[in-house]
Design a protein around this nucleic acid. Structure first.
Lengths: 238, 238
DNA sequence: CGATATATTGACAGGAGTCAAAGAGGGTGG
DNA sequence: CCACCCTCTTTGACTCCTGTCAATATATCG
């Protein structure tokens, strides 16, 4: 059951009583199947629920006054990309499916009611929004200090790491149904240049990105180019 | 009393019972006066307390494997820049004073104890970390979509907006004790180019940045160049 | 008042953007 | 099952924004 992906992720950084998890499971509304490129919430909306990605991909984005769109993050199974809406109702960015996706919804009122008697769960959700912020920080470092190929490598390394944690990397290969144009929006590059970087990677036997599938041919090199640091994963308290 | 700055900030986005605020005030440890460029916490440290900036400036930063330092954010009176440490103990970045600063400290254990019976306060703090994340997102947009001058303008506009909320802008003029080299680290630019942008702004009568003081000569132009949007400030719930 | 940090300049290089056109792929409707 | 269309990818030529290097001028501070 794909809801377990979210549970797994929460558990990876927080200790949560089983009954809290049970209570959480109980309020997840029936899954919805969304097509690719469907908006989940839009900038300016007031959230009344938050979602859980159960399969597929989603991304958060924001358009700047000059008309350019910046993709802020990609989300995979197990993620709750608009969890912050629970505490800050007005969305400051868009959330859209990247591919076909299964999504579960949790009504804010129900969730609040559940959290009222479950401090450990609330804290786990808080922590979830904080790891989110940590990813944003990494992203800032990437945009601010790395070259085009470094950014690309970082993106791939980070994504691989998260997908791997969900068991979605097989044989150093994973699905990533995205266009070069969207990659460009994420990396702050032009489409043309994204294409060039990708080709260079391909020619150098670093990675292959074809037909929505990424094949990592030299993971070490990617991690090195992107300066990716897996964050140790020991962010736990105690 | 400068602790009121923090209270004011919390109140600006959350409703908090007076007695919760009283409890919070009660556990803020005596203020410490720090010199410029003193580390408050470092990447890798395990937080046991969080701080409140009472006066002066601080910044968060991270060095990427290639040796470049990226400044993630600047913090001013009223900010709690390492609040996230309460839920995620291991720091993933540095926090340093930019100028001389007065800082108050709140012990994590005391804070946890206080929060245990004060859900509204806990939620306010959560929200505080989320507005932080929202600033990071804006920053990503800035780095990803704007030119050098756009980024600079955005930085100034955003800072002005936050300082103004704390009453620290007088006559469209405010202190900002920073070197061009650090500006470069924040904006992902080279020092030389920062200098050129600043001179261009000066010559065009947009702003003056001399001796640690920013004088805004054409705020509209700055906001326009930076595409700054004050966020409406109506992020409140209900 | 010298010493060190910061700001400023100028010359030059290069990474990444832009523009425009040509291929490829993948749907889909007949 | 194939032709056609539309989107996405790829190329090439050229531009330009921003970085690098190196020297000089200005602050700042003990």
């Amino acid at each position: 059951m794909p809801i377990e992906m979210m549970i797994r992720k929460l558990r990876s950084h927080s200790e949560i009583p089983d009954e809290d998890l049970g209570a959480l499971r109980a309020i997840i509304a029936p899954v919805k199947n969304l097509a690719a490129e469907e908006p989940i919430v839009r900038e300016g909306d007031l959230s009344t629920q938050c979602c859980v990605i159960l399969s597929g991909f989603a991304y958060r984005s924001k358009v700047s006054e000059n008309g350019k769109r910046q993709i802020l993050s990609f989300h995979i199974a197990g993620d709750m990309p608009d969890l912050q809406g629970l505490a800050i109702k007005r969305m400051d960015h868009d959330l859209t499916t990247l591919s076909k996706a299964k999504v579960g919804y949790i009504n804010h009122d129900l969730l609040e009611h559940t959290l009222k008697t479950r401090p450990a769960l609330e804290r786990a959700l808080w922590r979830e929004t904080l790891t989110d912020a940590a990813l944003f920080r990494q992203w800032i470092v990437s945009l601010g200090t790395r070259s085009a190929s470094g950014r690309m490598a970082y993106l791939i390394a980070e994504l691989r790491h998260r997908l791997d944690a969900m068991g979605l990397v097989v044989n150093e290969q994973f699905d990533f149904p995205i266009t070069q144009s969207k990659l460009a929006d994420a990396l702050g590059l032009s489409v043309v240049h994204v294409n060039r970087v990708l080709q260079a990677f391909r020619n150098q036997g670093i990675l292959d990105f074809r037909r929505q599938v990424v094949t990592l041919r030299d993971l070490e090199k990617i991690v090195e180019l992107g300066g990716f640091d897996s964050l140790e994963d020991d962010t736990n308290p105690t």
